[in-house]
Amino acid sequence: MSDLIDPLTQAKEWQDQGLKVAVATVVETWGSSPRPAGSQLVVNEEAGFEGSVSGGCIEGAVVTEALDIMESGTPKLMEFGVSDAMAWEVGLACGGTVRVFVEKLEA
């Protein structure tokens, strides 16, 4: 369950550089989904990201939401699945459902 670069270490480094950072974490999955609960994606205010919360299908949507959350500071639970019209748009091709918690890394 290891990533090549540890996302949380990356988050800390970005914050050290003065960048705003948000952390996205897979908290629940149903059916087939490529990344297990606990998988993380970290995003900085320049839309740079490290880690993954899916096989690449929902990262775009999560990054967009993360940019809002690092401004507002209000955490949000996102859900992607086949029953969700949005999921078709972002293309969760694996047919699973995944819930992703997105929070700001506070100072």
Partner: peptide
């Protein structure tokens, strides 16, 4: 997540 918590987690 608070920075202080992240630091404790990482250590």
């Amino acid at each position: 997540m608070k920075r202080s918590l992240l630091e404790q987690l990482q250590s």
